[in-house]
Design a protein around this nucleic acid. Structure first.
Lengths: 145, 145
DNA sequence: CATTCAACCAGTTGCGCAAATGAAAGAAGC
DNA sequence: GCTTCTTTCATTTGCGCAACTGGTTGAATG
């Protein structure tokens, strides 16, 4: 994939619009959480620490943009990532940002994203409850409901 | 590069902040234009169609974020991309958006970005003057000053 | 002459709160 | 056993507010 040598305003706008969706930490967090599987609104709200309505609104925007999609499961609404390509972009971005939020050098070949050197637990993006699990701190995502 | 299984709030914020820089078409355009080499403010302003002050301001933000850097050349200020990694992200994004601004499917392997089927000239992101050059419409970027 | 700074305006955005909607589960009646 | 009403829960929507953002204009700087 060579660097594009020509773009249209439409492309520019579309790209900017998509970037905009990811420009809010909370929303980015949502997409990231949905990166592995379906999750319902309540769980997402808990995970991000945002209120339910706020979460719903963000999800609505993401859904309107076609980034995520929802499906009903009983009373709950399960959201999932509908446009996987965006995950590639996010992955790309996170791959170059250290756990401390610093931009890692190395432009060309992304070295295996060095495991964020055990950040303080409190520093980790709140994921569900702080399950006091031991072993590998895989305290990242909520398990499938 | 595996999809990250753990992130910190700092990472989230940093990523969102960077995405935010790319969320404005004009600013994204600037970074894109600088993707190949140094350009001065005036040229950039012409290329994007924005005013000089506006361009300068956007560049200032990009510079503050470390995305671009500037160097003086006589009267002009030549900007360049300082953080190449961001180009990868942009490239990634554009690689999945058609000339008409549509999101192209195919998440995994990006097929060779199908040449934007000769978009109407007026539709092409204004690049410098509409140089009526013929042959391959390489009317994309301003030549090195 | 090229660029930046400063002040101002217009438009947008995200969030919290309260109310409304939609769907499932249980209770009551026929 | 099958409808119908009621309660309950998950999610969504409307509204107001505070904060932020980008652009323009005009002056200042190098």
């Amino acid at each position: 994939m060579a660097y594009p040598t020509q773009i249209t305003t439409d492309q520019l706008d579309a790209a900017a619009l998509t970037f905009d969706l990811l420009s809010v930490p909370g929303r980015l967090h949502l997409v990231w959480l949905l990166g592995t599987g379906e999750l319902d609104v309540t769980t997402l709200a808990q995970s991000t620490g945002a209120s339910i309505p706020a979460t719903s609104q963000q999800l609505a925007k993401l859904r309107a943009a076609g980034v995520v999609a929802a499906r009903r499961d009983g009373r709950r609404q399960l959201y999932r990532v509908e446009d996987p390509h965006i995950l590639v972009v996010i992955e790309q971005m996170f791959g170059h940002i250290g756990g401390d939020g610093t931009i890692t050098p190395d432009p060309g070949q992304a070295r295996p994203p060095r495991r964020p050197r055990f950040a303080d637990v409190a520093d980790v993006a709140e994921v569900v409850e702080r399950e006091d699990q031991q072993g590998r701190p895989e305290l990242s995502r909520p398990g499938p409901s």
